[in-house]
Every structure is written in C-alpha cells, then in structure tokens.
Amino acid sequence: MSEGTSDMVELTLRETQAKTSARLEWTLVGLGILALLVAPFLVYPIFLMKMLCFALFACAFNLLLGYTGLLSFGHATFFGGAAYFTAHAVKVWGWPPEAGILLGVAGAALLGLVMGFFAIRRQGIYFAMITLALSQMFFFFCVQSPFTEGEDGIQGVPRGMLVGVLDLNRSLNMYYFVLAVFLIGVFAIWRIVNSPFGMILRSIRENENRAISLGYSVANYKLGAFVMSAALAGLAGSLKAIVFQFATLTDVTWQMSGEVILMTLLGGIGTMVGPIIGASLVIGLENTLATSGFPVSIATGLIFMVCVLIFRRGIVGEFYARLLKRVGKD
C-alpha cells in the first residue's frame, strides 16, 4: 500500500514538474522571440544572422542526436553541401533565392538519404565513424569537382529579390527573412519531436531492441529521422550561403561537423532550446577570438573536454535539472 502512495506522490510531483517547466518554457520562448525581433537594432545584423543559421543547424543536428540517439559525425556534408547547391543555383543559373534554398534543402535530403542508407547499418560508435568517413568522401568530392570552384569557393552569390518583391540586399529584410525561416525550422523540429513519429524515435533512443520487438521497423524510422535532420541542416546551410553570399570548403570539413556537435553538447543534448544557446555561445566565442589571435580550435577543444568530463547535461539540461530538483523539494 505504501508503495502505491509513493507512486501517487511521484506522479503528482512529475505533473507539477512538467507544468512548471512547460509554463516556464513558453514564457522564455515568447521573450526569446521578442528579443530576436528587436535585436537587429542593437546588435550587428550579420552576426545575428550567422548565429541564427548555426542555431538552426544545431537544432537540426539535435533532432538526430538528442531525440533519436544517433551521433552523426558528418553533418557538415548537409550544411555545406546545401550551401554549394544554393550558391550554384542562384549565381550560375540565376534562380531566385527561395528556389535556390529549396534546391539546397532537397539536395541535402538526398545526400542524407544516401549517407543514412549506409550508416544505419551499424550502431553507436561505428555509426559515428561511418558518417565521418562518408562526409570526408564528400569533402574530397567537393575539392575535386569543378562546380564548387575549388579553394576559392563560390563567391559573389547575389542575394536577389525574395519572391520577386522583397529586396534581400537590405540588411533588415534579410534579417527578418532569416528569422522567419529559423522560426519555421525550429517549429518544424518541435512538431516532429512531439509527434507520434517523434515518440517512436525517442523509444529507439531509449531502447532500440524493445522498439524492434514492439514491431517498429527501426531502420526506416532512423532513416526518416536522418533525412529530416539532413534536410533541416541543409536549410540552415542554404540560408547561410544567401546571407554571406558565398559557399566554401570550410562548411564541408569534419571540423564543421565537430563544431555542431559542440554547440549541441554545450547547450544541452535533447533539449529544444539548448542547441540555440550553444550555437550562440560558440559563434560569439569564435567572433571574440577571431580578433584576439588565440587559436579557436584550442578553445573549442577545451570546451569539448570540459563538457564531456563535468558538464554532460549542457547549460539548458543543467538548468532544468536544478529547477526540477527545487520544485521537487517544495
């Protein structure tokens, strides 16, 4: 009997915790969007746009790592690949920006389908190594292929007119377009994560064998998650190509794949807001270091080591853990 009571207490406690965190989340989301709306009047818009692109990239990555439990070490392929596709379509073929971005997303999804097809054949550590190897293969392809224009990259991509009316060369127009795409992208991820499909992904993360024995075709779900994550990472890359008006090899290197892992890890794996905060911090740090002369890779490497050793929940994860502990005590 005492066991039953404690279960009840546990249940109400959890409900309170869930309610508290939900209320808090919505307040923070509202405040965050408000801040992003006024931000370009206070902060350099280019920096904000870079932040938003990488935040979307990290959220897309987190869809795979945080909610499906798959560590991809090859996400630069989708980010940088999509940037190349968009830059090429807009500059060489003269496509409007929205069509270029759609092409980038489609291309990234296709790359995701191919890479995912091979990678989901192995699990855990092998999955990470396979994605890394395949993305290195894509890197070599980009080095040799003429359409990427080699070491120079595709430079001077015109921003153009969005659907023929909105001039993206104006900084504020560009910023609000980026913000809109970012919000749509994050909303899409939120919907995916909280859909029945997303629940199955979580069950795969928690216990893959049980998901199999319950009759789910785990391989298909993993592949689906991989393609979605790739497409959204591609969206971020395409957007970045339009904002910065170039696409280069930097975005397809393994360092870039590592960077997005760091953003997610630092912010909090498996949280909605974590990757956004992580990306902002990493981009902010890089911007600061760029002028100081201190090598960025040492800093990111150190943060990596510290996070893995003592800060595995990340900023947002740690915040929730402390908050829930306090609610539990009351």
Binding site: Q255, G258, I261, L265, P295, V296, S297, I298, T300, G301, L302, I303, F304, M305, C307, V308, L309
Partner: peptide, 12 residues
C-alpha cells in the same frame, strides 16, 4: 567526444 576535443587542442 572527449578524445575529439583532445585532438583539437593538440592540433591547435
């Protein structure tokens, strides 16, 4: 991930 960070630091 830890050894990845270590590699970045050494290389850096």
């Amino acid at each position: 991930l830890f050894t990845f960070g270590l590699a970045l630091v050494l290389e850096g």
